[in-house]
Amino acid sequence: MKNTIKNIAALFLIFIFSGSLANAQGWTVPNSAKKKQNPYEATSKNVSTGKKIYNLHCKSCHGDPTMANMLPLAPVAPTDLGAQNFLVQSDGEIYYKVNKGQGAMPTFEKTISDEDKWMVIAFLRSFDKNKKVKQQVAEVKNPEVTDVKLELNVNEADKTLLAKLSGITKKGKRVGLQGIEMSFLVKRSFGYLDVSGEDPYTNEKGDVAVQFPADLPGDREGQVNMIVKVTDDAFYGKLEEARVVTLGVPTDPVNPLDERAMWGTRANAPIWIIVTFVGGVLAIWSVIFLVLFQMIKLPKLAKSKD
């Protein structure tokens, strides 16, 4: 009888234990952490910043929110962070998990700033069907426009780029579009370097000016390939302007093989090696020839002595 009770107890324990294992995603968050609220408002600027940070630090494993295209990792695949069953959590819970990490999920406590983490949470909240109300509406509203144009002016003297975004209203007037984020990208070998700076949003005239970095290398003539585009295609479709600009620092690529060095090619051996080697060979051969000549001379010498 005792044994059966023991067995049942053991089974029960195993059951509970295995339950907690299977429920590995059941990630306990302390109550104090749950109560934290996102101190940043869900403005379109913050959401767009959050999207950028998400694409850098989260997308490689979690995929795009709501698309469920995460990495198929075993034993626990990353969660779709746009799914409603994830977003039922409070801001504080998500913040805690991002900070602490678990298993294959890194700890982002020190790798990204608090502000950036909250921006990501603001971005994820934009997929939340229940909390749409919280979206701030205090943003600028652009009139409905057609024929949206992106113009790019390059000032080579002070290395600035001026982009202008405009569209034609229903009344047929061309107006600037305000508060739209632009990306200024410089082509490099394996990707695009973002030189947009801190605040690449268009002003009330639809203008945005960006200072090109003073020390960024270009090719021999200082030319670089640039792409200027509206960051989010959702506004006006894909709008971009590619241009070759002469804003980089002219750079002459150095060929390391031009240098005379021990590790280099045969043709570029250091002078001292060539001199000592050729000198050594010449010296040895001249000694041999000297000896030979002396030996030829010997019989003659003997004759003359006779």
């Binding site: 410089v186 370097l193 960024l216």
Partner: peptide, 19 residues
């Protein structure tokens, strides 16, 4: 990974290009 002449390297995971 990147090109020192261009002063830019690209992260293989995130695709981010930095100086």
């Amino acid at each position: 990974f990147g090109d020192r002449n261009e002063d830019a390297v690209t992260n293989g995971t995130t695709g981010e290009t930095v100086r």
